[in-house]
C-alpha cells in the first residue's frame, strides 16, 4: 500500500526537483566556467574567477541594494495599505462582496500589461498626472527620466498591483478573530484604537508574517515590472538583480557570469530567508501558524 502512495507522489516530486534543484546545481557548475562570446559560447573552466568578479562588481552590489530597497519599501507599503484595505473590507458595508472583487482586479492583471499602463500614466507630458499638474499651472514632471521619481513610480505600480493580495490574506486572518474578543474589550471600556493595537494586530501577526515572507521573496525577484516600466533606467538606477542576470545572458551573451549573478542572488535570498526562519522559530506563536 505504502509504495503505491509514493508512486502517486513521485511524478510531481520529480518535476519539482528537476525544476528547482537541477537549475541551482547547473548554475553552480556554470559559475565555475566562462561561457560567453569570448569563449565562442563554449564553457571553459575558470575556477573562482567569476565569483571574484562578482564580489568586485559595483553594478552587482548596486543592483542588490536597489533590489532590496525596492522590495523593503514596496512590501512595507503593501502591508500597511493592505491592512487598511482589509480593515475596510471587513466592515459590514453595503455591496461588500462586489467591492472585494473590484479591489482584487489589479492583482489579476498581467504585470506586463499593468506596467505598460503605468508607463502611459506617468508619461511626460501627456499622462494624466502631468495633465493635472499642467492644469494647475505647474511644469510637467519627467517621472521616468529622474532616478528617484522612476523608483517611486515602480514602488507605486507594484503596490497598486499586489496590495489587494495582501489585503485578501489579512482579511482571511481578520475573519478568524472571534467577535467575542471585541465585545469583551468593549465591556472593559477599550477604545477602537486600543482594540486594533491590543487585539487585532497581535492576532494578525501570523498572517502578516506569511504575507511578508511570501511577498518579500517575490519582490526580491522583481523583473517584469522593471523591464517594461523603466527598463532598469534611467542609467541603471532601477536595475534589479534579476534584470542584471537577464541582460548578461540575453544581451551580453555571457552565460557563465549570468549564472554567477543568479546564484549570487540566490545566496543573498537564502541569507534573508535564514533570518526569516530564525524569526519564525523564535516567535512563541509558532504552533498556531499551521
Amino acid at each position: 500500500m505504502r509504495w503505491r502512495l509514493w508512486l502517486l507522489i513521485a511524478p510531481a516530486l520529480a518535476l519539482l526537483l528537476a525544476l528547482f534543484i537541477a537549475p541551482l546545481l547547473h548554475y553552480l557548475w556554470l559559475s565555475g566556467h566562462a561561457q560567453s562570446v569570448v569563449t565562442g559560447l563554449e564553457p571553459r573552466p575558470v575556477g573562482a574567477q567569476q565569483w571574484l568578479r562578482l564580489l568586485n562588481d559595483g553594478r552587482f552590489w548596486q543592483d542588490a541594494g536597489q533590489t532590496l530597497r525596492f522590495a523593503v519599501c514596496s512590501v512595507g507599503l503593501e502591508l500597511i495599505l493592505g491592512l487598511a484595505m482589509a480593515l475596510l473590507l471587513h466592515q459590514p458595508i453595503r455591496g461588500r462582496a462586489a467591492i472585494r472583487t473590484i479591489t482584487l482586479l489589479p492583482w489579476a492583471l498581467p504585470t506586463t500589461v499593468m506596467a505598460l499602463g503605468w508607463r502611459w500614466i506617468f508619461n511626460d507630458p501627456y499622462g494624466p498626472i502631468n495633465q493635472v499638474l499642467q492644469a494647475l499651472g505647474l511644469q510637467p514632471v519627467g517621472f521616468l527620466a529622474n532616478p528617484a521619481l522612476t523608483w517611486l513610480a515602480l514602488v507605486w505600480a507594484d503596490t497598486w498591483k499586489t496590495t489587494p493580495f495582501v489585503a485578501l490574506l489579512l482579511l482571511a486572518g481578520l475573519q478568524t478573530i472571534p467577535e467575542d474578543l471585541y465585545d469583551a474589550a468593549r465591556l472593559e471600556g477599550a477604545t477602537r484604537w486600543q482594540c486594533l493595537w491590543r487585539i487585532t494586530l497581535p492576532l494578525l501577526v501570523p498572517y502578516l508574517l506569511i504575507a511578508l515572507l511570501f511577498r518579500l521573496a517575490q519582490a526580491l525577484g522583481v523583473f517584469d515590472l522593471i523591464q517594461v516600466l523603466s527598463g532598469g533606467g534611467p542609467a541603471g538606477s532601477t536595475e534589479s538583480l534579476a534584470l542584471y542576470a537577464y541582460l548578461n545572458a540575453m544581451r551580453f551573451l555571457d552565460f557563465g557570469y549570468s549564472a554567477t549573478i543568479t546564484l549570487g542572488s540566490f545566496v543573498l535570498l537564502v541569507l534573508l530567508g535564514g533570518i526569516g526562519a530564525v524569526l519564525w522559530r523564535w516567535r512563541p506563536l509558532a504552533g498556531e501558524w499551521r
Binding site: 505504502r2 507522489i9 537549475p23 525577484g221 534579476a242 540566490f266
Partner: peptide, 28 residues
C-alpha cells in the same frame, strides 16, 4: 493518505518551492 510525518516534511519543501522566485530559473 501518507502518514503525518513524511507528508508534513514533503509539504514543507513544497511550500518553500511556492515562495521561490521563478525568475531565478530563466537562465537554466
Amino acid at each position: 493518505r501518507l502518514g503525518q510525518r513524511p507528508a508534513r516534511q514533503i509539504s514543507l519543501v513544497v511550500a518553500a518551492a511556492a515562495a521561490f522566485p521563478a525568475v531565478l530559473l530563466f537562465l537554466a
